Every structure is written in structure tokens, then in C-alpha cells.
Computed example of a mutant assay.
Amino acid sequence: MELRHLRYFVMVAEELHFGRAAERLHMAQPPLSQRIRDLERELGVRLFDRNPHRVSLTEAGALLLEHARGVLERADAAREAMRRIRPGESGVLRAGVPPDTTPMALRTLVAGFTARIPDVLLELHELTTASQLAKLRAEELDAGLVRHPCDTVGLESSEVVHRRLGVVLPAGHRAAQQGEVRLRTLDGSALVIFPREMAPQLYDHMLEACRDNGFLPSAIRHARNPHFVHGLVMSGLGAHLNEEPYDELPAGLVWRPIDEPRLTWSTSAVWLPVQGGEVVAAFAAAALAGLREVGHT
């Protein structure tokens, strides 16, 4: 039995409504219902009586609620005790950021967080969206900065900010002459994109948007290091979708906006509900300020 399943159960028991409970947990209703069914199967009892008009606790559910609240209170107290003995006068905030976060965004993030919470050490980790989500759920991170779409079931999230993507091309590519590139004019070109395991849902979303606009890549090449990406594009081995570059591109490459608004970096801060509070709120505010500094809206 996992603590998060008990948290889900307590939330439904307090609301007696799966929809409202799912809203408070910042997750969709079907996964919440499935987690409760999983818990009932594990315990071998029915915890809720359900009908189209109301949800009520069974006798077993009422008994579990008494125990679950005590377990969760003790778990929260233990977690808070561990937080207080971390290095630093008031602790450490372990936070993940995307590998391609720009220097200006990081500078604004760190300065903003330090100004708000000067007695907490900010420990930043360069991690992909998938790695951040895994470490958050394993409680190896306190907060993250992730790209959407992604699976944030069971996590709380800040506002999502967006930045439109464009395409990096060799200067001699036929589409480089367009002020705004129509994706269909890239049809037949290869695509250079990050490996799928870095952010699976975002990867699939980007390929779907390309297909919907008539861009069917002749090949897909994976790269994560900017120098390698630019080397592939410069060699004529593919086009690369990304935000407008922070630094000047190497000679022979150009960046052009594209005609598909669905292709954006959509980013938010995320954290486990039990790890929320003033420190995480300060990180989220500073992170969004950093992103806005470099063009996210």
C-alpha cells in the first residue's frame, strides 16, 4: 500500500465526490477512480458505495479513514523533520530544470528565489522532463520545471507559460527564404529532435503536429547537445524545431518562425502536494519570472 494511494483515498472520502477530489489533486478523474479500485482490490474490501447520484463510505471505508489520517499525519511529520535537518540554516530545495534552460533564465530564477527565501539553499539539477517526474515521485526532488504535455498525475503545478517554436535550417534550404515557414514545405526533409525518452508525450505531440501540417520527415535523427544538433543541420541531415536561439547561430544556419501555434515550449513548475508551501511557491514564481525574461508568455 503506497502513501499516495492513501492520500487519494482520504481526498475522495472528504469530498465524497470523485470529480471534486480529482480537481483538488490536480489530476483527471479516471486515473483517480482506477487508483481507488486498485486500493480496494489490494485490501479485499469495498471502500465506497457508488451510484449515479452520490458516493458514500462503506463501513470498511470509514474504518480505513481513521487509520489513514493517522498514517499520513505521521508521514508528514517525519518528512518535515527530515527537511529541517538538511544542510543550510532552514534546509535545501532540490529542483530540476530542463537541460536547455538559458543562462538569462537561470540567473533570474536563482536571483529571484534567493531574494524571496535567502536562508534556503537552492540546489539545481539539469534533468529532462521524464527524469524530473520520476525523481519527484520518488521524493528525490522537491520541485521541477517541466515541459508539457507530460504526465503530472498526483502533482501540483504552477501556471503554464509558452514560447512559440521555429525551425533551424541551413541558410541554403528552400524554406529559409520564407519569413514564416510553412511546415508542409519541409515535407521530405529529415527531422532532428531530442530523444523520445527525454519527454515522451511532448515528442509524440510534436510529431503529430508535423504530420497534421503535411510534414512527414524522411528520417528522424536524435540529438540533445546543441553543438551536435547544429552540426547535423549544417551538414544537411535535417531540420530542427526549437525556440528562437539565445545565442547567435553558427554561420550557415538560420532560424525562422513556423506557422503551427501548437508547436511551443509549454513549461510549468511542478511539485508533490505534500511538498508545497512558501519555499516551493518562491521557486515557482522565480522560475516563471526567468522564463518570461527570455520570451515566454
Score class of each variant (00 low, 15 high):
152 T>A: 12
142 D>I: 03
111 A>Q: 14
163 R>T: 10
116 R>G: 04
164 R>L: 14
113 F>M: 01
130 A>Q: 15
142 D>L: 11
136 L>A: 09
164 R>I: 01
164 R>M: 04
124 L>R: 07
115 A>F: 02
153 V>D: 15
145 L>N: 01
143 A>H: 05
143 A>R: 04
129 T>I: 04
144 G>C: 00
121 L>Y: 05
164 R>Q: 13
131 S>K: 15
147 R>E: 12
146 V>E: 12
115 A>I: 03
160 V>D: 11
131 S>W: 01
135 K>A: 14
137 R>L: 01
154 G>A: 08
135 K>V: 00
118 P>W: 07
160 V>G: 06
155 L>P: 14
124 L>H: 01
123 E>C: 00
134 A>F: 00
168 V>K: 10
152 T>W: 04
134 A>D: 02
137 R>C: 03
162 H>Y: 14
167 V>D: 09
149 P>H: 08
142 D>Y: 06
161 V>L: 14
131 S>Y: 01
162 H>L: 14
131 S>C: 02
141 L>H: 05
166 G>C: 10
138 A>K: 14
129 T>L: 04
157 S>C: 10
123 E>R: 12
144 G>D: 05
164 R>Y: 10
124 L>Y: 07
147 R>Q: 13
149 P>G: 05
129 T>A: 05
144 G>H: 06
166 G>R: 11
144 G>W: 11
134 A>N: 06
152 T>L: 14
129 T>M: 06
143 A>Q: 10
149 P>F: 10
132 Q>V: 01
153 V>L: 04
155 L>F: 12
133 L>D: 00
111 A>F: 07
159 E>K: 12
122 L>R: 03
121 L>M: 10
162 H>N: 13
123 E>A: 13
165 L>C: 09
141 L>C: 07
167 V>K: 07
124 L>C: 03
122 L>M: 00
157 S>M: 13
118 P>H: 04
158 S>N: 07
124 L>N: 01
146 V>S: 13
131 S>L: 05
122 L>P: 05
135 K>F: 05
161 V>R: 11
113 F>K: 13
144 G>T: 12
167 V>C: 11
111 A>P: 01
133 L>N: 00
162 H>F: 09
116 R>N: 09
159 E>Y: 04
144 G>K: 02
